Simulated scan of single mutants.
Amino acid sequence: MLGVLLTLAALPVAVLSLVLIVGALATLVITSRVSAAYPPAGPFVAVTGGRLATIQDGPADGPPIVLLHGASANASDPMEGIGRRLAARGFRVIAFDRPGFGWSDRVAGGEAAAPTVQARLIAEALATMGVGPAIVFGHSWAGSLALALALDHPERVSALVLAAPVAMPMPDRLPDLPWYWRLAIQPPVAWLLSRTVGPPLAQRFLPEAARRVFTPQPEDPAYPELARAALVLRPGTLLANVQDLLGLTKALAAQAPRYGAIRVPALVIAGEADPIVRSAEQAVPLARAIPGARLVLLPGIGHMLQYAAADRVTEEIARLSAGSTNAATAAPAAR
């Protein structure tokens, strides 16, 4: 990465301009092809300032579960990992493209990097749909989003499933970012690179990124197509991805002290062999911070547990749902 930056910086202005122009043309081609290959796969929901895209499955009268994806992904990621399984078991499954990802608008621009802002938009969409309270599943980055929903919009959340969650305060650095995301530290640079050389470079390294997140499991060869992974290559999504990742440290520092106020049932589930979000640093202390949370650590499983351990994750969600339903039914009698 540093070598690439130094190479670009060392180029004569005319050559650098040519590189950026060629990159911009390549980006137009990539964006056009990706958009045509992976059109919207479900209905949109209007929110203040734009709309959010969803993928939905399962019976309309089933217990609702909301699926929220992590960085570099879109609604297809959790839907194809566990969503279809949950739908087959009678759940009403609603997977959102987070703001700026997939086909959702980047409502609020750079401010949408905050989990609290995304939670407000998701809550508004659920209210419009008449959905809630629902089980909310958040993977990786979206662990912080699911928690923000429970904290700020508890009427929309009946239970939490926090899968390989990023939720606890961490050092003001992001050491595991793929190198091309580090290009976009300053907003003007981010905007320029995301529309020129960023997408072609990201396209080149997308297979390696997929391999890394599945470690220690081998990558599922069907994953890129199932998860519509190439949608991340479009300029707006690349920029949103960088903003979300770079803004998370500050957001977690503000949000984490509130976890003790969560009162809904919570399942924290993670792979013990996850090299991306280490369970000892995130899942384990998070489970301690949420009153009554249940911690499940999966031996030998990495970051993509919704694929590598899809059946187990589905079973744990069904168990959580049954427990939540029983508790809600018993509550009036207890009073």
Rank of each mutant, 00 (worst) to 15 (best):
Ser144Gln: 12
Ala53Glu: 14
Pro169Asn: 08
Arg84Pro: 00
Met1Arg: 15
Gln203Trp: 15
Met304Asn: 04
Asp244His: 11
Arg51Gly: 10
Ala114Leu: 13
Leu246Thr: 04
Leu5Thr: 14
Leu147Ile: 15
Pro115Tyr: 09
Glu219Gly: 02
Thr237Leu: 08
Asp77Cys: 07
Gly81Met: 03
Val34Ser: 12
Asp274Glu: 09
Asp244Cys: 11
Pro216Asn: 02
Ala293Glu: 04
Leu248Arg: 06
Glu219Ser: 05
Met170Val: 13
Gly292Leu: 03
Pro39Glu: 05
Ala73Asn: 13
Leu147Cys: 09
Asp176His: 12
Gln203Cys: 14
Ala330Lys: 05
Met304Arg: 08
Ala36Arg: 15
Arg234Gly: 14
Glu281Gly: 15
His69Pro: 09
Thr116Trp: 08
Leu18Ser: 00
Leu68Gly: 02
Arg195Gly: 03
Ile301Val: 10
Ser17Asn: 07
Val13Thr: 15
Leu149Met: 13
Ala210Leu: 10
Leu183Lys: 05
Gln203Val: 03
Ala127Tyr: 02
Ala222Val: 04
Ile30Cys: 04
Arg120Gly: 08
Tyr259Val: 02
Val93Ile: 11
Asp274Cys: 09
Leu86Ser: 13
Ala330Tyr: 02
Tyr38Lys: 00
Glu80Lys: 04
Leu67Ser: 10
Arg84Met: 01
Pro175Asp: 09
Lys250Gly: 14
Leu67Phe: 06
Val232Glu: 15
Glu225Asn: 14
Pro188Lys: 02
Ala330Asn: 01
Asp152Ser: 05
Thr325Asp: 00
Pro43Asn: 08
Ser321Ala: 12
Ala134Phe: 05
Ile276Cys: 03
Leu2Ile: 13
Ala14Leu: 13
Val166Gln: 12
Thr325Ser: 10
Arg212Ile: 09
Val15Thr: 12
Leu16Asp: 05
Arg211His: 13
Lys250Ala: 15
Glu225Pro: 09
Leu8Lys: 14
Thr7Ala: 12
Asn74Phe: 12
Ala289Tyr: 07
Ala229Lys: 14
Arg182Phe: 04
Arg312Tyr: 02
Ala190Arg: 12
His153Pro: 07
Leu248Gly: 09
Ala273Thr: 06
Glu80Leu: 02
Val232Gly: 07
Gly198Gln: 04
Arg33Gly: 00
Tyr38Val: 03
Gly247Pro: 03
Leu174Val: 13
Leu305Arg: 06
Leu20Tyr: 03
Leu147Lys: 07
Val296Tyr: 01
Ile30Trp: 10
Ala280Thr: 14
Ala261His: 03
Thr54Leu: 14
Gly247Asp: 03
Phe137Pro: 04
Ala46Phe: 01
Leu5Arg: 12
Pro188Met: 01
Arg106Ile: 05
Thr215Asp: 06
Pro218Gln: 11
Asp152Tyr: 08
Ser144Lys: 12
Ala142Phe: 11
Gly260Leu: 00
Ser279Ile: 10
Leu286Gly: 12
Ala210Met: 01
Ala146Gly: 11
Pro59Phe: 09
Pro207Cys: 15
Val284Lys: 10
Asn241Ser: 15
Gly42Asp: 11
Arg120Asn: 11
Thr249Leu: 01
Pro39Tyr: 04
Val19Met: 01
Pro216Tyr: 06
Asp77Gly: 00
Val157Tyr: 04
Pro221Phe: 06
Ala60Ser: 14
